Simulated scan of single mutants.
Amino acid sequence: MRKLLDIGIEQMKKMIGEMADGSLEALGSARKSLEGEFNSTGEIASKLHILRLGILDLVTELLIRYSPVAGDLRYIQSAIDVSYDLYRISRYAMEIERTVKIVMAPVEISLEAFPLTEEAVKISVEAFSELDETLVGRLIEIDRQIDRYYLDSLMALRDNPKKAVDALIMRHLERICDHANEIGARVVYIREGKRW
């Protein structure tokens, strides 16, 4: 029975990996939209939604059939949260692309923040994939930097209402980094059983 649980967990890891790739692809497409290149982040988000539903079905089956405990149970619980975070990242990327496509306004702060946001998602995915707690500290640093960018965009908005698009995009980037941070928190939970 243990072998079947391991097979199910490996399948879940593969699906999370596909979702991670998709969220990074969506984020990259959203960044390109700031330069006038529009792709279809909506299709990526739809694909991630379907993958997430598959993960939820697999989780339900694993919980009912094998009654996992300890680390396996924490991993399975965390996979539910991570699949949600990755799906939300793709949705925020879709909203960024849609906003830019409709408004077509120049942005400054968002262009600076995008590489950090992409780095946060990459690090969170690596941390979860490898269950590497040492990467979580970098996620916290990036999250603080993105929070500062977001506040800067709000301050710029106060001084110049034409900066609304930048502030809106920064809001989405800030939420993406929060989701990346949550993925990092799942690593600590799986490894140590501690929530933060």
Rank of each mutant, 00 (worst) to 15 (best):
M1D: 08
M1S: 12
L5G: 10
I7T: 15
G8S: 13
I9R: 13
E10Y: 12
M12H: 03
M12R: 05
K13T: 04
I16M: 05
G17F: 10
G17M: 10
M19P: 02
M19G: 03
L24S: 13
E25N: 02
E25C: 00
E25T: 03
E25V: 00
E25Q: 13
A26P: 00
S29V: 08
A30V: 02
E35V: 04
E35R: 06
F38N: 09
F38M: 10
F38R: 13
N39L: 15
G42D: 11
E43S: 08
A45I: 04
S46Y: 11
H49P: 01
L51T: 00
L53Y: 08
G54S: 13
G54E: 15
G54H: 11
T60Y: 06
E61T: 07
L63R: 05
R65Y: 13
P68G: 08
G71R: 13
D72N: 05
D72C: 04
Y75A: 10
Q77S: 06
Q77C: 06
I80W: 00
D81T: 15
D81H: 11
V82I: 14
S83G: 09
D85A: 09
D85G: 02
D85H: 02
S90L: 04
S90W: 00
S90Q: 04
M94E: 11
E95T: 09
E95F: 09
E95W: 07
I96S: 09
E97Q: 15
T99F: 07
I102P: 04
V103Y: 15
M104S: 07
M104V: 14
A105D: 10
P106D: 11
V107Q: 14
V107P: 09
V107N: 08
V107K: 08
E108T: 13
E108Q: 09
S110P: 01
L111P: 03
E112W: 03
L116Y: 12
T117E: 10
T117Q: 03
T117Y: 01
A120F: 00
V121R: 02
V125W: 02
E126S: 09
A127G: 02
A127T: 00
F128S: 01
S129Y: 05
S129R: 12
S129K: 10
E130S: 15
D132I: 06
D132V: 04
D132S: 05
E133P: 00
L135Y: 04
G137T: 10
I140A: 15
D143I: 00
R144T: 15
R144G: 11
Q145A: 14
R148P: 00
R148L: 12
R148K: 10
R148M: 09
Y149F: 15
Y149D: 10
D152S: 07
S153K: 03
L154H: 09
L154A: 05
M155F: 03
A156Q: 07
A156I: 03
A156H: 05
A156E: 10
A156F: 07
L157W: 07
R158A: 13
D159E: 11
P161L: 12
P161V: 05
V165D: 08
D166G: 06
A167H: 13
I169C: 10
H172M: 13
H172V: 08
I176M: 01
C177P: 01
D178Y: 04
H179W: 01
A180C: 03
N181M: 06
I183Y: 00
I183L: 07
G184R: 01
A185G: 08
R186S: 13
V187I: 09
V188E: 08
Y189S: 04
K194E: 12
R195T: 12
W196V: 06
